[in-house]
Amino acid sequence: MNGKIVFFEERNFQGRSYECVSDCSEISSHLSRCSSCKVESGTFMVYDQPNFTGQQHLLTKGEYPEYQNTLGFNDCIQSCRIVPAHKGPYRMRIYERPNFEGQAHELTHDCDSIQDHYHMSDTQSCNVVDGHWLMFEQPNYEGRMLYLRPGEYRNLREMSGDDMRFNSIRRITES
């Protein structure tokens, strides 16, 4: 089994529940609201908007009785995506400007400060070759985040929806 998450309508695992073992673009089609969850196995990216948009947070095995306090979400979880376990190397190429232009660097490990380590003023596009990664708004893996699967990302600012800048990058190594 890759992963399993159980969503509950009310805080503290109360009310109706919905069990999920794959991506779900609209939890509201299963529950009237989602205010707590338990990750029984695997790793999930959860979003505060439908269709994998809005603020996001990585959840690993454990219990999450209240999102507002635990994750900082203003509302409830609206969609989720399973993060497949990755065995093997991690590799991504980051670029200073959109469309893979400007200064470029290849990463195979976490980077706590893009500015300090690569002297790049910004990271606006990337190519994820191997593994699953999180890009963070602030150094030291803090602030809002963006989940990246293998593929090309020509304009990270458009993806974040609000011209978010990225200052640190971490591999998702939880399984």
Rank of each mutant, 00 (worst) to 15 (best):
K4W: 03
K4H: 11
I5G: 00
I5N: 02
V6I: 15
F7M: 10
E9T: 04
E9F: 11
E9M: 07
E10F: 03
E10V: 05
N12H: 14
Q14K: 15
G15P: 04
R16V: 10
R16M: 11
C20N: 06
S22H: 06
C24R: 00
C24T: 10
S25Y: 12
S25A: 15
S25I: 07
E26L: 11
S28N: 15
S29N: 06
S29P: 01
H30L: 15
S32N: 15
C37Q: 11
V39M: 10
E40R: 07
S41W: 07
G42Q: 06
Y47N: 00
D48R: 02
P50I: 03
N51L: 13
T53F: 11
Q55P: 01
Q56N: 12
Q56T: 02
Q56Y: 06
Q56K: 01
H57K: 07
K61R: 14
K61H: 15
G62S: 09
Y67N: 12
Q68K: 12
G72V: 12
F73C: 03
N74I: 06
N74P: 08
D75P: 08
Q78I: 12
S79N: 01
C80F: 13
P84L: 01
P84R: 00
P84W: 00
P84H: 03
H86A: 02
H86I: 06
K87Y: 12
P89Q: 10
Y90M: 08
R91C: 14
R91G: 08
M92W: 05
M92E: 01
R93S: 13
Y95N: 01
R97N: 11
N99M: 10
F100M: 02
Q103F: 05
T108Y: 05
T108C: 10
H109W: 06
H109V: 04
C111R: 04
S113N: 07
I114P: 01
Q115D: 15
D116G: 08
H119S: 14
H119K: 15
S121L: 13
T123H: 03
T123E: 04
T123D: 03
Q124L: 13
N127F: 15
V128H: 07
V129Q: 11
V129R: 04
W133D: 00
M135A: 02
F136V: 02
Q138S: 10
Q138D: 15
P139G: 04
L146V: 00
L148Y: 08
L148M: 09
R149F: 13
R149Y: 12
P150Q: 02
G151A: 01
G151T: 00
Y153K: 02
Y153Q: 07
N155C: 10
L156Y: 08
M159A: 05
D162T: 06
D162K: 09
D163H: 09
D163M: 06
N167M: 09
N167F: 07
N167Y: 13
S168Q: 05
I169D: 06
I169T: 05
R170V: 04
R171C: 05
I172D: 05
T173P: 14
